[in-house]
Amino acid sequence: MNHYNSEEETWDLEIKPKTSLFSLNLKEVWRYRDLMLLFVKRDFAAQYKQTILGPLWHVIQPILTTLMFLLIFGKIANIPTDGIPPVLFYMSGVTIWNYFSACLTATSSTFVANAGIFGKVYFPRLVLPLSIIFSNIARLGIQFGILVIAVLWYAVFKKNPVAFGSQWLLLPVLVMLMAGISLGLGIIISSLTTKYRDFSVLITFGIQLLMYATPVVYPLSFLSNKSYAWIIYRNPLSAVVEGFRFALFNTGSFVYSSLLYPFVFMIAVLLFGAMYFNKVERTFMDTV
């Protein structure tokens, strides 16, 4: 069969049953960056067509959640807030947590929700979860804007000094950690749901439960002497949320080294997620 050894043929593409574990083909993802951008745009444009309030919903939702938390955890349960005005405390927690939960919920249904498109045309599947991460960054931006307005309002009317300093540089790092962890977990779960739908049930209440295991409605310092504190410390998101408040208000028991754990965790889930996603994306249409 090897008559043509002299003129080795070159193929642009070889479709094979299996590929190596990490052939993520990020180059191809980059080639499809326009598509990613358009998906982000679509998410935005389509969501608010035929709504009266439109993007205003991004503002209303965190404000109402903050007020509810203020009532339940602040007034009824009387949980301290590390010296931060309660409204700002809850609002900051809600802002960063919302980003995580929105990213995770959306990315974890990547395969099942887009089976229609995936079944007809090929493009690097990773484009979709990535576009979700980015379109949620825009939403995070809006909510962060409200948070900044609230901080300024407190500075002007309640004489609560704005803790603006070099620690604000932490913010992009923290957002990146949240993005990485939610993307990693999201693609793992979305890969699992192609065969086992159990995980899509798990994710809806799993995220809710996870919020209570993360210092969103209470400060980490509140747990210092509690016997169950280790659970909260094991949660890689704890340090990120705590770090977010530290960056904004310069208070709390945050130490920089505590971010090492979420960072390692992020790398681990991203690697495993990429590996698993890569394996599943090739044949998920047969099982989804």
Partner: peptide, 21 residues
Amino acid sequence: LKILSRTTAPTTGSIKIKGRV
């Protein structure tokens, strides 16, 4: 066609392609 358009992968064997499909 599904295998050719890469919406699913083959179980065994291969397809080699030159150019955009």
